[in-house]
Write a protein that binds this DNA or RNA. Structure first.
Lengths: 211, 211
DNA sequence: AAACTTACTAAACAGTGTTTAGTAATTGTA
DNA sequence: TACAATTACTAAACACTGTTTAGTAAGTTT
């Protein structure tokens, strides 16, 4: 009979509904505002019901984690159309920044917060696959750059981690507000976003020079 | 009469005692464990008393903020003995990493967390002076490098922010555990710390190349 | 019709930051 | 010296958090 299947389907829908409510709250108001009670209220169920679908808040955050990586991948979507690897590397950086700026809470969730990755470490199943894959995209691009003659004399992993560090540092300093504060004090650029673009361009200049 | 002075002195001592209790809890167990109640218990006063000396938790965190920068400055202490600016820049990077690794919670407080810097933005008095000064140390070093012939064709602020981004990115990815995770997956180096040192060395290699 | 399972929730527990009202003890004044 | 005022402190509460437990209706199976 299809009754069990229908029920199963409904359960999956509710689980998805919980996740989407969490995603909306999280992306709009951040981690603090994403309480189990707030999620429950949004889907019009009791807080305890949420626990029937997710073990704890960490598990919800882990699920959101995967959502976040899907979004990042979407930002990387059009990169394949760029055949020249160095240009693709720069475009990747630009896309990374755009993702971080348009989805700061998501960026923090997947690249800054410790709790979700701790959860990931405890359940050894799917682990941090998405993150590993995202790194691999960068690494492969660097390798391709070297194949076409760029970055000679550098080891690709070392360079990849350096590039990731720079991009992550820039984005996280921007999101946390630290870049903005120093920007205001040093008055290098009129606003934070200008400074950010400017710093990125300086970085691309560095990459051009070691090309 | 010296009675009022003695009392005033005692009040200042208690305020310091609260801060030191907070510092100890914070550096050992992190932000979560540093609750007002825990602080109060440590100094053997009631939680409400803490509020007679600090407006709220943010104000305590802001005070700890300043403590953190004092510690960072201590790590930078011996840098003046290095006359050659480029070598000093590299040593600065090494000191920055050492500070981050030996005091991860403090590093997060002053460079990662948003809340304290929000508090800093609201009270416009002393603002984020320590951070600005720390940036200025980096900037001046870059300027000195250029004076002695390095980094020609680069604008010093752009380069300073790029360097800070790289260093911060590396340290924060290490502390948050993200670097460790990708390290394990990519198996570039046997352990995270090796990867971190290795990435830093790659970065110094980049700086050497654009020197 | 009775037993069992499912889906859900009210209420509680222990914790958080923070505020309010009140209490002793000390100090200043009449 | 007696009374008022100030100081330093705290118990208890409020509103929130994540999470668990016990219980309740409804649907399913026997």
């Amino acid at each position: 009979m299809g009754v069990a299947e229908r029920k199963e389907r409904h359960k999956e829908e509710l689980k998805k509904e919980i996740l989407m409510a969490a995603k909306e709250l999280f992306m709009e108001k951040g981690y603090e505002a994403t309480s189990i009670r707030n999620i429950a209220e949004k889907i019009e169920y009791s807080p305890a019901t949420v626990y029937l679908y997710y073990k704890d808040k960490d598990e919800i955050m882990h699920a959101l984690h995967q959502e976040g990586f899907k979004m990042l991948v979407a930002y990387f979507g059009t990169l394949n159309t760029i055949p020249e690897p160095f240009g693709r590397l720069i475009a990747m950086g630009r896309a990374y920044i755009q993702f971080a700026m348009e989805n700061p809470e998501m960026y923090e969730l997947i690249f800054v917060m410790k709790d979700p990755i701790d959860h990931v470490a405890s359940c050894a199943d799917d682990s941090w696959d998405e993150g590993d894959r995202a790194y691999d995209v960068l690494f492969q691009t660097v390798v391709e750059c070297q194949k076409s003659g760029d970055f000679q004399g550098f080891e690709p992993h070392g360079l990849s981690f350096t590039i990731w560090s720079t991009m992550h540092g820039l984005c996280s300093l921007r999101i946390s507000g630290h870049l903005g504060h120093v920007a205001e004090a040093s008055k290098v650029k009129p606003d934070v976003d200008s400074l950010m673009t400017y710093t990125f361009e300086t970085f691309t200049g560095v990459l051009e020079k070691i090309r």
